[in-house]
Design a binder for these strands. Sequence first.
DNA 1: TCGAACCGCGGGTATATACCCGCTCTATGC
DNA 2: GCATAGAGCGGGTATATACCCGCGGTTCGA
Lengths: 133, 133
Amino acid sequence: MPNDTCHCILLRKASRKVSSYYDEALAPLGVNIGQFSLLRNINRLAPVSLTELAIQVDLDRSTVGRNAKVLERMGLVAIGHGEDQREAMLTVAPKGAAILKQGAPLWDGVQDEIQARLGAEKTRQLQELLAAL
Amino acid sequence: MPNDTCHCILLRKASRKVSSYYDEALAPLGVNIGQFSLLRNINRLAPVSLTELAIQVDLDRSTVGRNAKVLERMGLVAIGHGEDQREAMLTVAPKGAAILKQGAPLWDGVQDEIQARLGAEKTRQLQELLAAL
DNA sequence: TCGAACCGCGGGTATATACCCGCTCTATGC
DNA sequence: GCATAGAGCGGGTATATACCCGCGGTTCGA
């Protein structure tokens, strides 16, 4: 099996490449796809603790904590405390809600573009394969 | 389109997950899949400059430079100079060759495991889809 | 009620990744 | 031969990501 069919390396390449598509589209808003997606998840689950959010997005808790802190510095997310004093509860700030609204069509654009390029059937295949890995 | 069908986020998740499979398999050698793959590419192209290697592996030159420096610290790669005094020429050190030899069956194992799980047809589909992105 | 187990986080450390800037070396035109 | 343009790198900065450790808050059993 030749080196350039390594599933992992191909996946990583594709991941970097596709991420850059979304990053470019979202660049006018000053956020990247990782930040935008995290913001969406915070919005969906708010108020949510770091631990719960990390589980939901399938990332390490410390990673989510650091990424959330960047969003907080940007003024997109508020980090407060829950009843349990240990918990850092995340909510979307007004500025973050604005980004979500402005970003939605930009995100849709890239999404549609990719689906148009692949076609409906292959798009479905891709979703299925990625879930199966 | 629901949030959890974002092509980008799914790709990133799959990429992290699959990377961890390879990382686990290679852990006994003290290298991760990124390092192992880079080492393979250096071996394939040696002697090779940073710029050329970066083009081949589709990564930023500075990224390749930093990753190569880690491999050098590990004693797996030698970084010398070409005729052009500006060029950093990379070659695989003996210790790196040993890692390549020991790692090959470990890498094959994960590769086979994934293919067995997906089946031949879906494996082919995956390769095709990732290339089309 | 009080100590022990347990849970949630922050921060340290390390790699991965990209963009940009500045330095140095090379090549080219005059 | 020399000045200038261009190429190759290193390093700064910033985010992304994971693992581990220690601190502090909670809870529960004795």
